Simulated assay, not measured.
Amino acid sequence: MEAATLDRLLDYVAQHNLKDGDALPSERSLAEALGVSRRDLRGALASLEAAGRVWRGVGRGTYLGTRPLKFSASLSSLRAGSSPADIAEMRLVLEPAFVELATSKASPDDLAELEKCARRNAMAKDDDEWQQWDHRFHLLIAQATRNPAIIALMEVVNGMRMKPTAREKTADQDTRRHFAEQHQAVVKAMIKRDGATAAARMRDHLLNVQWRIPSHRG
């Protein structure tokens, strides 16, 4: 249902000629306009937020586009001048530790959502759809840590990855399939509450991502 809601939401944006920086209606109004439940709408908005296509601020509403730097000034320096290689290296250092922490803290609902996201990732038909579910997968892991600082950092990392100069391309189906299998291996280890294995599988995955960045190839 979430995928159908996401399609309706994207159609709504297109039909109303909304662009980056424009505000979306309130959650209640938007759910009524789309003919969907607020729960399904929240899931669709979370997917777009993880992909850097909308941002939400407490008391501010939901806006199209990436979060403006003025609303995340303490982390803005991370965005400035970071190359794809820099981002990949940072992720390799940090995310295995994040997933190990998340394995110990994740609720059954967190794990179910991660499993669902990994399945959606495996079904991606193109690079845009892959990126959407990939960003959501990594943000869900951060959210499962229950650590606001880690969650904020991953939101910024996802935003950095959306820049045209920093975005990893997964243009071929074989690459997407391979990465999806690696995501599923991470989730399987998390479900078994095996943090060390989950961290190792995440490290394997990020090494594969890093290898596909030109400056890291042998």
Rank of each mutant, 00 (worst) to 15 (best):
P108C: 06
V93P: 00
T165W: 11
P148Y: 07
T103Q: 06
T170V: 11
E100N: 03
L114E: 04
R161L: 15
V93T: 09
P164G: 08
Q132G: 00
L153I: 10
I151R: 01
G159W: 02
I141D: 00
S83G: 10
K125V: 10
F98W: 15
L101A: 10
A102D: 03
T145L: 03
H135R: 14
E89P: 00
I150W: 07
V157Q: 09
K163W: 09
C117T: 15
M90E: 12
V156A: 13
A142C: 12
N158P: 11
P96V: 04
N158Y: 07
H135E: 11
L140H: 07
T103F: 05
S104F: 01
F137I: 08
A171S: 14
A112G: 09
Q173S: 14
P96T: 06
A149E: 12
A152I: 00
K169T: 12
A106R: 02
V157R: 06
K116V: 00
D172I: 06
E95I: 00
A142M: 08
L140G: 08
A122G: 12
D126Y: 01
T103P: 08
M90P: 00
D174W: 14
L111H: 03
D109L: 15
S104K: 02
K105Y: 07
V99Y: 06
R161V: 09
I87S: 02
D110T: 10
Q173C: 03
I150L: 15
L153K: 10
